[in-house]
Structures are given as C-alpha cells and as structure tokens.
Computed example of a mutant assay.
Amino acid sequence: MDFLQLPKRTSGNRRYGLTSIADFGTPFGQLKSILDDYGHIIDIAKIGIGSAYVTPNLQRKIDLYKEHGIKPYCGGTLFEKCYQQNKIPEYLSCLRRLGIEWVEVSNGTLDIPLKERLEIIAKAREHFHVIAEVGSKDSSLEMSISEWKEEMNLFLEAGCEYVITEGRDSGTSGIYEKGGSVKSDLISELIKDIDTKRIIFEAPTPKHQMFFINAIGANVNLGNVKLEDVLILESQRCGLRSETFYLEDCHANHLNQTPAHSME
C-alpha cells in the first residue's frame, strides 16, 4: 500500500526515529520469524537486564540481529554487575569477541559516581559506540531537572552516541511516576535544551509510546519496546491509530509548547 499521506519516517540505517527493542529471552527460532517480518522497523536490540550472560545461542542471536541491520547490545544491569565485581575490562573484551559494537553505561541499580562513568565512557569509546543511561530504577530516588540535564549533556559531550532516559520495562521509575504516568514537566524541560535526536526515551507500553510520538513527532527515538509491539508502534508513528490519527509530519504540541529541536 502506498497511496495515503502519512508522517514521513526515517529509514535505512537511521540516526534518529529509532525503535530499540528489549529482548528478555526470545527463543532463537521465534526471533528469526519475527525479524523476517519486522526486522526493517527495528534499529537496536537490547538483550535485557543481565540475561546475555546466561542466554543460550547468544552468538547466533547477535549474528541474526546484525544480519538484519539491527545493532545489538547488552542491558545496563550486566554492565553494573561487571562494575561491582571489577570486571569491566573482561566485559569489554567479551563484547568485542562476540562482535557487539555498542555498550551501555548505566547507573540504574548501583550508585556509580559520575566521574567514574565518564572515565569508563572515555575508555569504552576506543572500541565501541557508547550509550549512557540517566536515571535510577529505584522510584523513590528523585533527580532534579537540572541534574537530569547536567548528566545528559555531560555524556553527550563525552562522546556518547545517545543518552537513554530510564523508564524500566514497567514504566514506573525514572521519567515515570510510580503509577506509570509520564513526568511531563521533566520531559518539557529536557526537550527544550537537549537535541531529541540524541535521546532514547524508554517507553515500554503503547500508552507511553503514544505520549512521546504526540509530544515530539513520528521520528522520536523510543526504547524498551516489546518485540510483539513493534508493528503497533510503527502504526502509531504513521498516524494509523486513533490516538495519533492527526499526527503531522514534523511534531505535535502535546506539551503545549514547541520543542527546541524539530524532527524533520
């Protein structure tokens, strides 16, 4: 089908408009079937939490993702486990052997000093594309808006390709309230001052995804997307769902303001 006027989507080896899925143990055969149909609308694949360490057929999975042009990486929890046990060099060496070219530096479970995270990023950038996550998985820990902005800007200045806003796979911490609602005031401030093309917003449910699509546009970067939701998400991005039906080519104004960085 190619006759409707829809919001223009980025395509190919996208730099923004990314869909980053979370793989929490999809069996290899099932994954192959999913990617045969939907691989073209997936850009990044996070092998969730620390599951890569115990995943059967891990090398085959990594190779399969790469065959479909999808960038695989390991969840930040595995990075933090390696940090806790002073095994970061071994971890990075293992990633290189596996052919993984992306690494996440996170702070979701441990309280890793900012200076140390920046030092690890500087070292990892010698061989990897680096993504840094901002925010805690503990919903009782609050960061001020200025702290969010400071960390995100420092990571981007340090050479990270993207920064991820913590949301967990449940959507109940980081950029979300305990009950799952989006901290819209925080998002409003972040998109004023930081290039949204460099932010991956964790949005684990269609409800969360619709918020960011309406707030920023069809080509917002979204992470922690469930594999079974990737076609729903692409439909939402294209204005093919009631909640995004009137989506325009550039961006909507869900936050009652114009974001500083357009997404055309």
Rank of each mutant, 00 (worst) to 15 (best):
I62P: 03
P113A: 02
G39F: 14
E104A: 07
I232N: 13
K115E: 07
G50M: 12
K192H: 14
T55P: 03
E67V: 08
A260R: 15
A215G: 00
E177M: 15
E248L: 15
M263F: 15
K192M: 15
R14L: 00
Y91A: 09
S184A: 15
I191N: 01
L78Q: 02
S11D: 07
S235D: 10
R241G: 02
F128E: 00
V54G: 07
E177Q: 12
K46R: 10
D63V: 02
K8T: 11
I47S: 00
L247P: 06
T205C: 08
A132D: 01
L92G: 02
R241P: 03
L227R: 09
I44P: 00
L231E: 12
T77L: 14
L114G: 01
R14F: 05
S33L: 14
L95S: 04
N86Q: 10
G29R: 13
K192Q: 13
N57Y: 12
L190S: 01
H127N: 10
V163H: 01
D43S: 07
S146G: 07
Q236E: 11
L95Y: 04
G217W: 07
L114W: 04
T55F: 11
S262A: 15
I187N: 03
D36F: 13
Y38H: 10
K226A: 11
D249W: 10
C250M: 14
L110K: 08
K207Q: 12
E147Y: 06
V182T: 10
I112A: 00
S33Y: 14
I21P: 01
I42C: 05
Y83A: 02
P72G: 05
I200S: 05
K123E: 06
E126N: 11
G217T: 06
L190F: 09
T55W: 09
I164H: 04
G29S: 11
C250A: 14
H68A: 09
H261F: 15
I200L: 13
H208C: 07
R60L: 12
K178I: 14
H68E: 00
E126A: 03
K137Y: 11
I199H: 02
W102S: 07
K137F: 13
K137G: 15
A124K: 03
R237D: 00
F201T: 07
E177R: 14
S106V: 00
I187Q: 01
H254K: 15
T258A: 15
V220C: 13
E151N: 10
S51F: 15
I112Q: 04
A158G: 05
S146D: 08
I194A: 03
R125I: 00
H40L: 12
S144E: 11
G179K: 14
L190R: 05
Q257H: 12
E202F: 00
L186D: 05
I70M: 04
M1A: 13
E147P: 07
K207I: 12
I191G: 04
I213M: 05
R15V: 10
V105Q: 04
M152R: 02
G12A: 08
T172H: 09
I21L: 03
L31Y: 10
E157L: 09
F245A: 09
I213H: 04
L6F: 03
I21T: 04
H208M: 04
T55L: 13
P27M: 09
K197I: 08
L118I: 00
H129P: 02
L18K: 10
P206T: 03
D43R: 09
L95K: 06
A260C: 13
I49T: 05
T77Y: 10
H261L: 09
L78Y: 12
L31Q: 08
S242G: 13
F24W: 12
P206Y: 10
V225D: 05
